[in-house]
Amino acid sequence: MGDVPYIAIEGPIGVGKTSLAERLSSHYGFHLLKEIVDENPFLGKFYENIEEWSFQTEMFFLCNRFKQLEDVDNDYLQKQKPVIADYHIAKNMIFAQRTLKGDKLDKYKQIYDIITDDLPLPNMIIYLHASLDTLLKRIKCRGREIEKNIQPEYLAQLSQDYDVFMKQFKQKNPHIPIIQINGDQVDFVNRKKDLEAIIKQVDQKLMAYSL
């Protein structure tokens, strides 16, 4: 693993990535990197008409996440300051491969490869996953206006895509530990013991690479 902790939390929409990142950032005193979601001017239109607005939506996310990660690399990681993020930029390809087709997907892949070529990889991934019912309940509970038109079918497919991606990521990067957490069974927001159990797993991984 790297010299300085760089932890990314990943999983489908509504699974609790930001909530966990905030709690772990507070516990460890690591810099918190949160993805820009609400500022995407295309997102509401995207959930209404995925095919029409997918390229604009994905390009906005890619450019903003690139800028965020470039800044965090320069301002924190290169200065040996630990970081915990509520996303990994590779998620862009998970969404793009589902929403883009033909020439648009080809163009997007070319831009993605160029932009992400020299970005730092996390040296630990926390993968949150949950059933469709759990995801839908959490999305409804947080009540974001831009998410009201998310279709259950899209969310279910996205969850499957994440499972495939994480398996592929593990094969390509066997040296990067992945902590998997079942959101149906674990409630780190309302149960302190669940959060403590996650922290214990992170501690073990941090200790392993510091030896």
Results as ranks from 00 to 15, higher is better:
residue 143 G to S: 14
residue 86 D to S: 07
residue 145 E to I: 09
residue 93 M to F: 08
residue 166 M to Q: 09
residue 153 E to A: 12
residue 94 I to T: 07
residue 147 E to G: 03
residue 153 E to R: 06
residue 119 L to Y: 07
residue 145 E to T: 12
residue 105 L to H: 04
residue 140 K to L: 10
residue 128 L to W: 01
residue 141 C to M: 13
residue 166 M to D: 04
residue 134 T to M: 10
residue 71 D to P: 01
residue 142 R to W: 08
residue 159 S to N: 12
residue 142 R to K: 11
residue 103 D to E: 12
residue 168 Q to F: 01
residue 127 Y to L: 06
residue 99 T to M: 02
residue 118 D to A: 13
residue 112 Y to K: 06
residue 173 N to E: 02
residue 123 N to H: 06
residue 199 I to T: 12
residue 123 N to R: 03
residue 153 E to L: 05
residue 124 M to I: 10
residue 144 R to D: 05
residue 73 D to L: 08
residue 114 I to L: 14
residue 176 I to M: 07
residue 82 P to L: 09
residue 70 E to M: 08
residue 83 V to I: 14
residue 151 Q to H: 12
residue 112 Y to G: 05
residue 85 A to C: 13
residue 182 N to D: 15
residue 97 Q to T: 14
residue 116 T to Q: 02
residue 156 A to D: 15
residue 77 L to R: 05
residue 187 D to F: 00
residue 76 Y to G: 02
residue 157 Q to H: 11
residue 108 Y to G: 02
residue 114 I to D: 09
residue 162 Y to F: 14
residue 181 I to G: 00
residue 190 N to L: 11
residue 80 Q to G: 08
residue 92 N to V: 03
residue 186 V to I: 15
residue 187 D to H: 05
residue 197 A to S: 13
residue 133 D to G: 09
residue 104 K to R: 13
residue 202 V to D: 05
residue 118 D to K: 15
residue 169 F to C: 11
residue 171 Q to K: 13
residue 140 K to G: 14
residue 196 E to W: 03
residue 104 K to A: 13
residue 104 K to E: 14
residue 136 L to I: 10
residue 192 K to L: 09
residue 150 I to Y: 00
residue 165 F to A: 13
residue 119 L to E: 06
residue 153 E to D: 14
residue 200 K to M: 09
residue 186 V to F: 02
residue 186 V to P: 00
residue 152 P to Y: 08
residue 80 Q to H: 14
residue 76 Y to D: 07
residue 68 Q to W: 05
residue 199 I to K: 07
residue 130 A to T: 05
residue 201 Q to N: 09
residue 153 E to V: 09
residue 147 E to R: 04
residue 106 D to H: 11
residue 200 K to S: 10
residue 97 Q to R: 15
residue 72 V to E: 01
residue 108 Y to W: 06
residue 125 I to W: 01
residue 160 Q to A: 10
residue 144 R to M: 06
residue 117 D to S: 13
residue 172 K to V: 06
residue 205 K to Q: 11
residue 180 Q to T: 13
residue 73 D to R: 13
residue 140 K to N: 15
residue 181 I to Y: 02
residue 160 Q to K: 13
residue 137 K to D: 15
residue 169 F to S: 10
residue 180 Q to R: 11
residue 118 D to L: 12
residue 185 Q to K: 10
residue 133 D to A: 14
residue 127 Y to M: 04
residue 110 Q to H: 12
residue 132 L to I: 15
residue 150 I to M: 11
residue 205 K to S: 06
residue 201 Q to L: 10
residue 96 A to T: 03
residue 140 K to T: 13
